[in-house]
């Protein structure tokens, strides 16, 4: 099963990526071929096979409800590309 341009546009949007028309074309070709290859899994009978998310099968890994050390605000400020009054600045959202 391949992939069409409309779908490429849709997933690029979901992934917050901007593609040029050339890139769209290239991705359509390359992802189409890769997805065609992925169809190989169709050969398998997977009806009663459980999915694997973790190889080691651990469960219930938790920590105690204790407060620990936080960053100094200056560290957060240092990281942020735009910063004002102890806040990270972003384009207006509403």
């Amino acid at each position: 099963m391949g992939i069409d341009k409309k779908t490429i546009k849709g997933i690029a949007n979901l992934a917050s990526l901007k593609l040029t028309p050339d890139e769209e074309k290239l991705m359509e070709d390359q992802l189409g071929r890769i997805l065609d290859y992925m169809d190989i899994l169709g050969e398998l009978n997977l009806t009663d096979v459980p999915p694997t998310s973790h190889t080691l099968g651990f469960t219930n890994v938790t920590r105690k409800d204790k407060e620990g050390k936080c960053f100094d605000v200056s560290v957060v400020a240092e990281l942020a590309p735009e910063w004002q009054d102890d806040h990270v600045v972003v384009p207006r959202v509403v």
């Binding site: 992925m38 899994l41 398998l44 997977l46 096979v49 459980p50 999915p51 694997t52 998310s53």
Partner: peptide
């Protein structure tokens, strides 16, 4: 895709 791959991973 994803679910199928997770099952194939089991095999």
């Amino acid at each position: 895709y994803y679910l199928k791959a997770q099952k194939a991973r089991t095999l």
